[in-house]
Every structure is written in structure tokens, then in C-alpha cells.
Amino acid sequence: MTGKKRKLDEVGSGAEERFKEEVRRKVFAGGGRSGPRRMARLTENGIRALRYFEGPDYEPAAEADAGGRLSTVVLGPGSYVTRRSDANSKLPQAIVAARTHYGIGFKAGHLVNAEFGGDGQNARNLTILTPSANSAMRAFDNRVKDACGQLWHAYVAMNKLGIEVANLEFGIALSIAVGTDTWSVVPPGDCIADELTCTARLHRPVNVQALLDAAAPDPGDRLQGWRSQLDAATQAVNEVIRLLAEANASSLIDNRQNGADASDDEAMTDDEDVTDDEDALGV
């Protein structure tokens, strides 16, 4: 190779290296050997927009006037919104006749809670509940609300780690099923179920450490403070798991006639799905 050719190759090689370094500066930003990687992250409003990964979906009961048979939804980190119940107190259709016939202050009970996006104006998401059953259902719902708060914290921490959370679909799957045994075989008792079964489970569980290792295998490429965010995300995921286990401990809702309170003085009101903690998400 001639000296002139060698010199041109060296110039070309240097230009290529300078180009690569320019690209590197756009991808990396200060710190470590080449700095932590600048990964795509969502804003908090972007995380809030991750409300539902599936549903809410409602299946009607066999008896047309009984309301719903099964409601399902997969909750995302932005799903829980504090609000008062929107339940129509005159739905399902059989509830007015049931109040008169049994002298009980039946509630128009949400299957999927209003604060999880459940529609209180859609009879397929409502069922006829005794006051005691309606109160018992809050034990399940309140633990799920707490779990939603921890789900939010998990997403915020994972997002800060540089994990691409937009397509994770890590969430909470709810299934609220109305039993087939009823108070009677004739109206309106055939529209009142003896029990409900509420189930909460993880949807697409995550391993935060594995996600971080995939996003930034070299610790030198990770964002400043990544260890504390890893701990926060892992703890939040574990709290979601714990809270869902507590919710499932209250999964069976007794709606039998012998547990009803005929003296309840809220006979014509709907369920009151109001959280005890209006700042559950901490945002």
C-alpha cells in the first residue's frame, strides 16, 4: 500500500470513529465509562394512560332481569380512579320488586367496582346484593385498590430504571362471578344469587431484575440511582402479590337470604364504592 493510500485510509477511519462517537453521545449521557444509556421513558401521564389491558367485559345472567353473570377486567397502573358509585339503584330490573317482596334494602352492587372502571349504568355489571354482602365485598375491593397503588409505584420505578413499560401489560386480572344458586326458582328470588366469587391474580408477572438486565446488561450503562429504584420496584411488585392474596382471602361473598338485614334503612340506595384512602396512589 502506498503512503498516500495509507494516509487516506487513516483519515477515513478517523472520520468513521468520529461519527460513531457522535452517535454514542446521542445515546449516552454523562457518567460511567460511556454514561448511562438514555432509554425511552414514559411521563407520569403516559403511565396513567395505561388503564386497562383487557376489558372491562360483562356477561349477562341467564335471567334477563338479574343483571350480570360475570365481569372481568385487567387493570393497569392507571386504572384506579377515586370516585363515588355510579350504580343505578333501579338496576338490575328485578331489584325494585325484590325490595318490595322481601322488605330488604337490596343494593345495586357493582361486579367490577366503579373505581376500577366498572359501569354502574350497565345492568350486566350489576347484581342484587344484601347490605351485608355489599359491605363484605368492600373487603375484597379495598385490598385490590391498595394493590393498584403498589402497581403504580412498580411502574414508576421500572420506568425510572429505563425499562420500557409501555408494552409490559403487567397488571391485575379481576374476575367477579355470580353463583347459580338463587333464593327461589320464581321471580324475583330467581334473580338473587346466594353468593359471588371474586378473584384477583397477576397478569403477565414480571421479574424486575431480569427486565433491567435485558434493558441495560452493563451496570455502567444504567441510570444514576438505579439500585434504589430496583429495590423500590421489586418491593412494590411483592406488595401487589401480598395484597392480592389478602383480597382473595375475602373472595367468597355470602349473599344468602338468612344473612340479609330486613331492617336496613338504606333500602333505595345503591352501593357506595368510595375508598377509605383518597390518595392511595400517592400521586
Rank of each mutant, 00 (worst) to 15 (best):
L50W: 06
R84M: 06
D277T: 02
A260K: 04
E54M: 12
M268W: 15
D273C: 09
K90G: 12
A61S: 13
R222G: 11
G118L: 15
V27W: 06
N258F: 05
D279T: 07
D119Q: 05
E17W: 04
T199F: 08
G3R: 09
T72H: 01
F28P: 03
G225S: 03
D270K: 05
L252K: 11
I241N: 02
A232R: 07
E17Y: 01
R37K: 13
N238C: 00
A177K: 13
I47E: 04
E59W: 07
I241R: 08
R138P: 01
G30Y: 03
D231Q: 14
N125H: 04
R41C: 01
G103I: 13
V274E: 12
D86T: 14
I172K: 04
V237L: 03
D221P: 02
A94N: 10
I241T: 06
D270H: 10
R6T: 09
K5F: 15
G162S: 02
E21N: 13
A136G: 06
M39N: 13
S263Y: 10
L174D: 07
G149T: 05
E272G: 01
V23E: 11
D265C: 03
P131F: 04
A236N: 05
E266P: 00
L75R: 12
A108T: 14
A147P: 06
S135W: 00
Y80E: 14
H203Q: 06
G189V: 14
F106S: 02
T82G: 01
A236P: 11
G103T: 14
V81D: 04
Q224F: 01
A260G: 06
A260T: 09
I128D: 04
P205H: 09
R204T: 14
F53P: 00
A40W: 02
A193K: 04
I128S: 03
R143T: 03
N159R: 03
R204P: 01
D57E: 13
V206P: 08
A249R: 15
G162L: 02
A133Q: 14
A40R: 11
D270G: 15
A66D: 06
F170I: 01
G225D: 05
A245C: 00
S184D: 15
H101R: 15
G67Y: 04
G30C: 02
V112F: 02
D231F: 06
T197I: 15
E272K: 09
P56V: 09
P56L: 08
R48L: 10
S175H: 05
H203Y: 09
E246I: 12
R84Y: 08
S71H: 04
E44K: 08
E115K: 12
I47W: 02
R38T: 10
